[in-house]
Design a protein around this nucleic acid. Structure first.
Lengths: 255, 255
DNA sequence: GCCAATTGTTCGTATAGCGAACATACGTTC
DNA sequence: GAACGTATGTTCGCTATACGAACAATTGGC
């Protein structure tokens, strides 16, 4: 890079090596790693050796894998967020009250990222863990988080999102989504019905810090049996109770 | 570093910046970051700016924070491990059967690192999430994981561990711990009673891949009410059921 | 044994990254 | 408003870090 005043290329490269490991590529040869990241073999090798030295990767002499130490990096984020500790008990309370899965997520770009999860029963096809991402536009928590943004900012995020079609119910029009976000802003909750996955319905509410800013959303996900109205009546009370309790804990934090 | 043939100092520095954010230091000024990592201010600034450019950190102009994107790094590990997806349903089954929290962990150095968790009721004082670490020597999952190692390797790990005293029951002598690990190897399970925290008891069993190698441990943690024998009778059957099912799934994996 | 593919190693070189020093900004105190 | 202490922003000459082409060595399949 022409101006090395503010960017460290080696850090970008190193992080790209870590990200090269996926569910479909749980282990990589040196040549794989070079190919996936676009680095030269010698460069990729140096980064893998460095990750090994630091304890983040291991090799059997041919195949490289990440180690659990990589979780420390994400743990730095979760620890610094402070939120998962606070919401965990409340999500359990919700799950116990309504017998459904409850989660918390934050907004990151055009995605929501799960930061806490209590699974009561499996509705979704994909496994959700801390770190899992979904598009904000088609999730109840995403719409709640977008609702707290300045409308121009929300529209910018929606416009620049990919807005894939997941089901025949998926809303993709920016104007439809903005109208929905406005409704969420008015009502204080979001209900999304089979837009991300057929058979899946979820309801979310925001949680706020002492400044009133929305720092996360919490939700309940349930099957799409029964009417949306019945679902709302079943789960919104428990979400509201948890929301109030979490808001109070966030307000009382010395930070 | 004198020989730049295999180590990338900039990657180490960048990762140390990420790790500088903790529960006690959720946000850092530039000078904080420099102080914590031992880097010069200009260097620390370059790394923070690079993390910001890549989406891993954000600043309000004075204080820096990590973003949820950092969770992607840990998620790379979890996705590549494959295990959390497999164990999740089984941990829920255990939790439902015995009405206690169930977890899975892997060994990393002298620690266990949680990779999946289903919380039924809160026994421990600290919040456990994916990425949380505890010393292997004083945990049921740790002893199960040590039991699968070559005894010389297990002894090396125990000898080089800090072996803190957490309760009056904590075993710290390497020979006592090695005897315990031998018992675990014979019996196929570990029960740890109030060695990590008073009032906490846990039982763990190993899960193996198709080569027979132990890839993780699963456990149930419960309160130390009643006798250890009663606890064992209550929870070991459910653990064994889950262990068998997980072993079968791991055997059938094409990897 | 041969060969292709892959990994390991070298080393001259370029530049990425460094950091001391200075400039600027900010908040507090008087 | 001025002065001061603290913190951050910026610069740029320097050099050590990191690079990568090229060659060496290893591995596995046939």
């Amino acid at each position: 890079m022409s101006d090395s005043g503010e960017f460290v290329q080696s850090l970008e490269r190193g992080l790209s090596i870590i990200r090269a490991f996926t569910r479909d590529r749980p282990q990589l040869t040196l040549s794989d790693a070079a190919a996936v990241t676009g680095l030269t073999r010698a460069t990729a090798r140096r980064f893998l050796m460095t990750l090994e030295t630091l304890g983040y990767a291991t090799t059997d002499g041919k195949n490289w894998r990440l180690t659990a130490r990589v979780l420390d990096l994400g743990h730095s984020y979760l620890a610094s967020l402070g939120l998962p500790e606070i919401v965990a008990a409340h999500l359990e309370g919700i799950a116990a009250a309504v017998h459904e899965s409850a989660s918390a997520a934050v907004l990151d770009g055009g995605d929501i990222v799960y930061v806490a999860r209590v699974e009561s029963r499996k509705i979704m096809r994909v496994q959700i863990t801390v770190g899992t991402r979904f598009p904000a536009s088609v999730t109840s928590m995403g719409r709640v988080l977008l609702a707290d943004l300045d409308p121009a900012e929300a529209e910018r995020i929606l416009s620049s999102s990919e807005r894939s079609i997941f089901t025949p119910h998926t809303k993709t029009s920016v104007s439809d989504l903005m109208a929905e976000v406005s409704r969420v802003r008015e009502s204080g909750y979001s209900l999304v019905d089979q837009e991300l996955e057929m058979g899946l319905r979820s309801v979310a509410v925001p949680v706020r810090d002492r400044s009133g800013r929305v720092v996360a959303a919490i939700n309940v996900s349930t099957s799409a049996a029964g009417s949306p109205r019945e679902t709302l009546e079943n789960v919104l009370p428990a979400l509201r109770v948890a929301q109030t309790a979490i808001d109070e804990e966030l307000r009382s934090l010395v930070r």
